[in-house]
């Protein structure tokens, strides 16, 4: 029997809508394709959802395990969901040497050699993978989206060192935070672009209050470790922006124009984190 080398956690949504040719909804077919693409010999997947959501998920491939999500996401972000730390802990609990998170709208078109290369490298470093956007399911080439990480793999021991409280799947910032958290602890992080990590492109419409709330979580985590940020050599602008965000994130409601300032400063700080991560960037053939 083959042991599990990689355990991935995700949170499959009950529905997925994506614009398709002729105005049809390509979401259901893409969702099915994503679900079918994750598991492979040595790769195991668990979806972590609120208990009340499972009935709406429909039939899942038998390779995908299920787990009930810890409560509380709706209280913070206004809709039911899964805590990132909860999901990652489910992957860790499998005992696999490599664990990770995959966003539910990512299709992994990875031949065995690529899976092996990812698993081998992720046993030594955190790999944060950009997605390749495609316009339709049959497309095999597209641009990489550099400002986000849709598949994250890491050694199991590293997962235990990350502070993930307050971040939820489907809400921005958790992918930036895992990068920053690891680097602040001098843990190795590499950015990976691989054309087998595919995403059916669709208009992005972030919920701005949730975006700012999750940014606030990031800054609350960063605050006690602000001094360590200097060691990363992000530069004077990045540090100044971090200081601004540390000051205003807990006080967003104190008046004009703190929410706008958070949006602008947060955007800049986010791309600073991307730049920091891309100091170690790789392409996987």
């Amino acid at each position: 029997m083959r042991v599990t080398e990689v355990a991935l956690a995700t949170s499959i949504p009950p529905r997925m809508r994506r614009p398709g040719p002729g105005g049809e909804d390509a979401g259901p077919a893409w969702r099915t394709a994503c679900l079918a693409s994750w598991a492979a010999p040595g790769w195991r997947v668990v979806t972590v959802n609120p208990a009340e959501e499972f009935a709406a998920l429909g039939a899942l491939p038998p390779e995908i395990g299920t787990a009930n999500a810890a409560p509380g996401v709706a209280d913070v972000y206004g809709r039911a969901g899964t805590w990132v730390g909860d999901a990652l802990a489910r992957a860790v609990s499998t005992g696999a040497p490599v664990v990770g998170l995959v966003n539910a709208d990512i299709r992994l078109d990875l031949r065995p050699a690529r899976r092996a290369a990812l698993a081998e490298r992720a046993s030594r470093a955190m790999l944060v993978c950009n997605r390749m956007d495609v316009g339709h399911a049959a497309q095999a080439a597209g641009p990489f989206y550099r400002y986000g990480y849709d598949l994250v793999l890491m050694p199991r021991e590293m997962a235990g060192r990350l502070a993930l409280d307050g971040f939820a799947l489907g809400v921005p910032w958790w992918d930036y935070w895992v990068v920053l958290d690891a680097l602040l602890q001098d843990l190795p992080v590499q950015v990976v672009q691989c054309d087998g990590i595919r995403h059916l492109a669709h208009p992005q419409a972030w919920n701005q209050p949730a975006w700012r709330r999750a940014l606030g979580v990031l800054m609350a985590n960063l605050g006690p470790r602000r001094a360590a940020l200097e060691r990363l050599g992000m530069g004077a602008v990045a540090e100044a922006v971090a200081d601004l965000l540390l000051a205003i994130a807990p006080r967003e409601t104190e008046g004009y124009p703190l929410d706008d300032m958070m949006t602008v400063a947060g955007t800049r700080f986010g791309i600073e984190i991307v730049r920091l991560a891309e100091r170690r960037a790789w392409r996987l053939d």
């Binding site: 050699a113 490298r121 672009q193 790789w282 053939d285």
Partner: peptide
């Protein structure tokens, strides 16, 4: 192997 080091220069900076 299949890995290629990549140096990315973002014109935002």
């Amino acid at each position: 192997g299949p890995w290629n080091r990549r140096f990315v220069h973002d014109l935002l900076f």
